[in-house]
Design a protein around this nucleic acid. Structure first.
Length: 460
RNA sequence: GUGAUUGUAGCUCAGUUGGUUAGAGCGCUGGAUUGUGGUUCCAGAGGUCGCCGGUUCGAGACCGGUCUUUCACCCCA
């Protein structure tokens, strides 16, 4: 009995039509990355679990896909744990590999492992799928592609500025209106310091991140429930509700954080970045947003997030600076900063806005109808010349009915069809049919090539 | 992980309080048209109603479980 085929939850097949669009996104970001001097690398889909575990917080560990050891994976398992169904404790006995959760941690691993061959600062980009075992929902998949650009081995804020330029250029090319939100983890640390709750920084950032979602009152409730005193909550009110221009916000912050060295350092960094951005006069809207926390706990400086203005789908790009990601793997004092473009969400946004280019440049421009035998030979000979002229062309592989071959051309939206049977072959010509207008004419090979090239080739 | 939601032909969906042989549109195949697609007309093929179990004389419909879809929460691209 034939079983119904299917794919795992949260994964997707991509049809030719979708791939053309996806590749357009990949090609666009790649071209920008390369323009700024970033070079490609790739890393394996699976990493050692020890590389992945503990890098994304408790929640992240849960969302890691673990791979069962090969062979008799239970043979080394502890009997007692097995009997008690202690899956969490059993994991490291039955699994030593996992699917990568993002591209940043594998990159840090790569840098440490290849440090002797790398010239710093190292600028790399990486476009590969990542996997997360959470429940799929709108704009969330279990397998999705990230397009990462990172610089490691440089503390300069010029890198932050450059990455913002990359964001600006990518989204201008893709024709998406976005706003880039900028914050600095040092400021968040400073806030926690000022209210004497340095250990609560994660709780505080998570709570204020929800401001525009659940409102001020609920945020304060959450802060209280996490054990913050009412005076502490009182102290950070002006920060949560900061308003005015960027300059005004920074000035207010300076006052509140005057007693915190890290806090002031964070403000200074932001000021520098904003000053550079002012000089560059980007079209991109850059907004200082203190409610931007981002969950990944390895960020130490700048934090970025990009949202589409016209589509509600969550962030489509995110990133930040991490001062010590390579430290865990034994390479100290290498700071890095990077951002990640979420290709799948960008795809969803562009689809909703219908902002993909109409002409894709990849589909077949002309189909040669197959009449078999000597006519077929005549066709493939001409076909070779047409292809040599840079035209995407194919011949129908079987001497099938005309109706079938024409239907094929129609379905594939091939704009031209060439008919060359006995008569044409004897006269050394071709019948060229324009599938859009229905017109057809007898032409020589040269005229055929010229006409297809002149048409721009592609209908939508 | 928590709370909802969906599943009937290749696709989109009807299917009455539980009652004979489960329907439509689109698509597909063949024909009208042996060298002409996208329009039209005619005919045909295609379904263990997601899966397992239960209630019932009788289940596509009701109940339980499971998988799947979509959505919200947590978290995140």
């Amino acid at each position: 009995m034939a079983q119904k085929p299917g794919i795992p939850k949260g994964t997707r097949d991509f049809s030719p039509v979708e791939m053309v669009k996806r590749n357009y996104i990949f090609d666009t970001v790649k071209s920008v990355f390369q323009k700024y001097g970033y070079m490609p690398i790739e890393t394996p889909a699976m990493e050692n679990l020890s590389t992945l575990m503990g890098k994304y917080g408790e929640e992240g560990d849960k969302l890691l896909f673990k791979i069962l050891n090969s062979g008799d994976y239970l043979s080394k398992a502890n009997d007692q744990l097995l009997a008690e169904k202690e899956s969490n404790k059993l994991i490291n006995q039955i699994s030593e590999k996992g699917l990568r959760y993002d591209l940043t941690v594998p990159f840090a691993r790569y840098v440490v492992q290849h440090q002797s061959e790398i010239t710093f600062p190292f600028k790399r980009y990486q476009i590969q799928p990542v996997w997360r075992a959470d429940r799929p929902q709108k704009g969330r998949y279990r397998e999705f592609f990230q397009c990462d650009v990172d610089v490691v081995g440089s503390n300069s804020l010029l890198n932050e500025v450059e990455l913002i330029q990359v964001v600006d250029e990518v989204y201008r090319l893709l024709n998406i209106n976005v706003v880039l939100k900028l914050n600095n983890r040092k400021i968040l640390t400073g806030i926690a310091e000022v209210i004497g709750a340095a250990d609560k920084i994660v709780d505080i950032t998570v709570a204020i991140d929800k401001l525009d979602k659940i409102g001020l009152e609920k945020v304060n409730e959450e802060l209280a429930s996490k054990g913050l005193s009412s005076t502490a909550i009182e102290t950070i009110q002006p920060i949560i509700q900061l308003s005015g221009t960027t300059q005004e916000k920074l000035a207010q912050l300076k006052e509140v954080l005057s007693s915190s060295e890290v806090g002031l350092k964070g403000i200074e960094e932001l000021e520098t970045v904003f000053t550079y951005l002012d000089h560059l006069k980007l079209e991109l809207e850059v907004e200082l947003d203190l409610t931007l926390a981002r969950g990944l706990n390895y960020y130490t400086g700048a934090i970025f997030e990009v949202k589409a203005k016209d589509v509600a789908i969550g962030s489509i790009t995110g990133g930040g600076r991490y001062d010590d990601l390579t430290g865990i793997f034994g390479l100290k004092d290498v700071s890095g900063v990077g951002i990640s473009f979420g290709a799948d969400r960008i795809y969803d946004v562009m689809n909703q806005l219908d902002s993909f280019p109409k002409k894709d440049g990849v589909r077949t421009q002309v189909l040669f109808v197959n009449f078999g035998d000597e006519d077929e030979l005549y066709a493939i000979h001409a076909l070779k010349n047409v292809r040599a002229a840079g035209i995407n062309a194919e011949v129908y592989p079987d001497n099938g009915k005309m109706k079938k071959q024409m239907t094929y051309a129609n379905k594939k939206q091939i704009p031209f069809v060439v008919l060359c049977g006995e008569q044409e072959r004897k006269d050394g010509v071709f019948t060229l049919k324009n599938m859009e207008s229905g017109e057809q004419s007898m032409v020589t090979l040269e005229e055929l090539v010229k006409e297809i090239q002149a048409s721009g080739g592609l209908m939508n």
